[in-house]
Amino acid sequence: MLDQAFEALKTYKWGVDPKAIKAIQDTIVATHGDAAARKDLESKLAAVLATDAPRAAKDSVCRFLKTIGTAHSVEALAKLLHDEELSHMARHALQTNDAPEAVKALVGAMGKAPKKIKIGIISSLGARGTGVPIAPLAKALADKDAEISTAGALALGAIGSEEAVKALAAAKATDANKIAVCDAMFQCAENMLNHGKKSEAKAIYSTVLKIGPTKAAKMAADIGVKACA
């Protein structure tokens, strides 16, 4: 069944019944805890990404690798990050891949990525939350393009570390990115509060109030200040 499913994957176009490749998902579930079987499966899936299999096939492979991907499949996925059609699904697999190599691949792809793809990569780095270098996100935050800057801010907020706070505090908030910058700072402040760091959180809220927040952000800052009392 599994061999047939991999055979079907070679020509798996839009319109083919998903049952044709269901055995792969079934095998993923059945091999939980079997490292050797998983490694073999991961290798076979990663190999499909290097072929001329249809988009729907590679899309499905990325979905499978989301569950079982390790450092072993990062290289194959990383090659798709600049592919306009497959970048999102490659991120789908890499975003939750615990291997440090996945972070390196995402960061490495940021530099030369077209704008829209870069925003996606920034978003995935933020969604990881931990183990992500701050410098590339701070650079994105400082980008002249408002959408890239906004993405950088939100990613830093999702990470919420002290280093992220420093990057956000150093940023120049503009009308175009202000909502994101304020929200990111709130997320950092909440992270501080959750760790009992009330004075640090209060300082963040004070910083937000100084940058001329929107009405909504002003209200949020006021709520935050009260939570620090």
């Binding site: 939980h32 569950t67 079982i68 999102h88 991120r91 789908h92 829209k116 996606g120």
Partner: peptide, 16 residues
Amino acid sequence: VEADRLRNRARREPWQ
């Protein structure tokens, strides 16, 4: 770890 991976999905760019 595998169950944790199913908590979230990557958003298609440019959504965040």
